[in-house]
C-alpha cells in the first residue's frame, strides 16, 4: 500500500503543460460543453413550453422562449392540493426509503465483501440469480398483500429495498478498502459491527452519496409500485400524476374508440414534467461535493 498524504486535488495535475496538453484541454472543454448543450436544449424547450399557450405550442415547432408568457398550466396544477400532497408524499417516501435502502444494502454488502465468510458465495449466487429471474408481477403483488402492506407507504420501499445491482457494486467497493484500517480497529477491540459503523462507513462517503442518489431517484421515478400497491388516491405519489397527464392516453383513447375525453394540453404536460423533475434535480449538486473528495483522504497513514 502506498503512503498517503493529505492532498486536495484528485485529478491528475501537470505543472509543465505542453502545447499538446493545452490543445487537448481546449478540445475537451469544447466537446463537453457541446454535450451539455445538446442535453439541455430540448429540456429548455420543455421549460419554455410549460410557460406557453396551447396555440403557440401547436404552431411553433421548436422554441426556447415563449412569445406570450402564460402561467395557466402551473395555475391549473396548483389550483387543488392534489399535486402538493403528492409532492410531499413523494419527498417523505423518498427520504425514508433512501435511508432504509442504504442501510439494508450497505449492511448486507459488507459481510459479502469478506472472502473468508462461509456461505458467502452461495448468498452471492442467489442474489445475482434474482437480477435476471423473477416470479413476476402477480406473485409479488400477492406477497405484498399477504404482508399487509397494501395501501401502506412501506409497499413503495420494502419490495425494492435492495437493488442487487447496487449491492454488488457496493460489495466490490468494500473489497477495495484497505484491510489494514479494519485490522487496526479490530485490535482496538471493535467487533465487525463496530468496524463497519466506525471505520468503514465514514470512509465510504462518496459511495454513500452515489447510492443515495441512485436509490432516491429510483423511488422518485417509480410509478409501478404505487400503481399496484396503493389504491387510495390520497396516497398517490407524484409519478402517478405525471404519468396520468403525460402518457400516451390520447393514443389509447383513439384506438379504444372512446373519445369523450379531451387529452390534457401540451403546456400542462410540460409543466408537470418540470414540477416532477426539479426537486430531485437539486439533490445532485448537493451530493456532488462529496464525490469530489477522495475516498481515502484524511484517513490513517500507514
Amino acid at each position: 500500500m502506498s503512503t498517503m498524504t493529505e492532498t486536495k486535488a484528485t485529478q491528475p495535475v501537470n505543472n509543465n503543460s505542453s502545447l499538446g496538453s493545452r490543445a487537448f484541454d481546449t478540445l475537451n472543454v469544447v466537446v463537453l460543453v457541446g454535450l451539455a448543450l445538446i442535453t439541455v436544449l430540448p429540456l429548455l424547450y420543455v421549460l419554455a413550453g410549460s410557460f406557453a399557450g396551447e396555440a403557440e405550442i401547436s404552431s411553433r415547432p421548436f422554441f426556447l422562449w415563449p412569445e406570450k408568457f402564460v402561467t395557466e398550466s402551473y395555475a391549473y396544477i396548483f389550483a387543488t392540493d392534489t399535486f402538493i400532497r403528492a409532492l410531499l408524499t413523494t419527498v417523505v417516501v423518498t427520504a425514508v426509503g433512501t435511508v432504509v435502502q442504504l442501510l439494508l444494502t450497505f449492511t448486507m454488502a459488507y459481510p459479502l465483501a469478506k472472502r473468508y465468510l462461509p456461505g458467502r458465495t452461495l448468498v452471492l449466487n442467489l442474489v445475482i440469480f434474482t437480477m435476471v429471474f423473477s416470479g413476476g408481477m402477480i406473485p409479488t403483488y400477492l406477497v405484498v398483500r399477504d404482508l399487509g402492506l397494501l395501501d401502506s407507504y412501506w409497499a413503495l420501499i420494502l419490495p425494492l429495498a435492495i437493488n442487487p445491482f447496487y449491492l454488488i457494486i457496493v460489495k466490490s467497493f468494500f473489497q477495495e478498502l484497505p484491510q489494514a484500517l479494519e485490522e487496526a480497529a479490530r485490535i482496538d477491540g471493535c467487533n465487525e459491527m463496530g468496524v463497519f459503523f466506525k471505520i468503514v462507513l465514514p470512509l465510504s462517503k462518496p459511495v454513500i452519496a452515489t447510492f443515495s442518489l441512485f436509490y432516491a431517484v429510483a423511488i422518485w421515478n417509480d410509478y409501478m409500485s404505487p400503481l399496484l400497491y396503493i389504491t387510495d388516491p390520497g396516497k398517490w405519489t407524484l409519478q402517478i400524476l405525471v404519468r396520468q397527464l403525460t402518457s400516451t392516453d390520447a393514443a389509447t383513447a383513439l384506438s379504444q374508440m372512446d373519445r369523450t375525453w379531451v387529452p390534457p394540453e401540451q403546456g400542462l404536460k410540460f409543466a408537470v414534467v418540470v414540477i416532477a423533475t426539479l426537486p430531485i434535480l437539486f439533490f445532485y449538486p448537493f451530493l456532488q461535493k462529496h464525490f469530489a473528495k477522495g475516498v481515502l483522504i484524511g484517513s490513517v497513514k500507514e
Binding site: L104, T105, T107, M108, Y110, P111, L112, K114, L117, V123, L126, V127, T130, F133, S134, G135, G136, I138, P139, T140, L142, V143, L147, L158, P159, A161, I162, L167, N191, E192, M193, F196
Partner: peptide, 24 residues
C-alpha cells in the same frame, strides 16, 4: 456479527424475491 449483518438482507431476498418465484 457478520452473519447478523447479513440477516436483514437475506430475509429481504427470501421474502420479496424468492417467495414469489413460484410464479414461474
Amino acid at each position: 456479527w457478520l452473519y447478523l449483518m447479513l440477516l436483514p438482507g437475506v430475509a429481504y431476498f427470501a421474502i420479496f424475491k424468492y417467495l414469489p418465484m413460484y410464479g414461474v
